[in-house]
Amino acid sequence: MSKHYDWIVVGAGVIGSISAWRLQQRLGRVALVEADEPGGKATGAAAGILSPSAEAVDAGPFTTLLQASRKRYPAMVEELQDAVGMDVGYHPSGVVQIAAAPDEVSTLRKRLAWLDGVTWMDESDARPFGGLAAIYAAQEGQVHPPLLVKAAVKAGIAAGVEPYFGQPARLLLEHGRAVGVSLPSGTIYADAGLIVAAGAWSSIVTAHWSAPIPVEPIRGQIVSFATDRPLMPHIVFHGHQYLVPKRDGRLIVGATEDRAGFDARVTASGMVHLAQVVEGFNLSRDRLYLERVWAGLRPKTPDGLPILGPWPGLAGLYVATGHYRNGVLLSAVTADAVLAWAQGEPLPLDLAPFRPERLLAVRSADNG
Rank of each mutant, 00 (worst) to 15 (best):
I218K: 14
L132K: 12
A133V: 15
P61N: 09
V57K: 12
A83M: 09
V14K: 03
L351D: 07
G44Y: 04
I15F: 07
V57F: 12
L231W: 12
A275I: 15
A159T: 07
P214M: 07
I222W: 05
A320G: 15
R247C: 07
P306V: 12
G261S: 09
T119P: 11
A56R: 05
D191Q: 13
G309Y: 06
H238W: 02
K300W: 13
T321M: 06
S69L: 02
I8H: 04
A46T: 06
V77K: 05
L115C: 04
R247S: 09
L314S: 10
D228G: 15
V205N: 03
H208G: 01
G176E: 13
A197S: 14
A315L: 15
K150H: 04
D228R: 14
P61F: 14
G85P: 01
E345K: 13
I213R: 08
T107P: 12
L183K: 13
L351G: 08
G344W: 11
M1K: 14
G48A: 06
A226R: 11
P217V: 00
G166E: 03
R109T: 08
P212W: 10
R298E: 04
E79Y: 04
T64D: 14
S93W: 13
G131C: 06
W201N: 05
A68H: 14
A169T: 02
L308T: 04
G94S: 11
A200I: 01
M121R: 08
P348Y: 05
G280C: 02
L231G: 14
S19T: 00
R111F: 00
D103Q: 15
L66E: 03
L305F: 09
A268N: 09
S106G: 14
A56Q: 05
A158G: 06
V105T: 15
W7L: 06
V333P: 06
M76F: 11
V215Q: 01
A198S: 06
R298H: 03
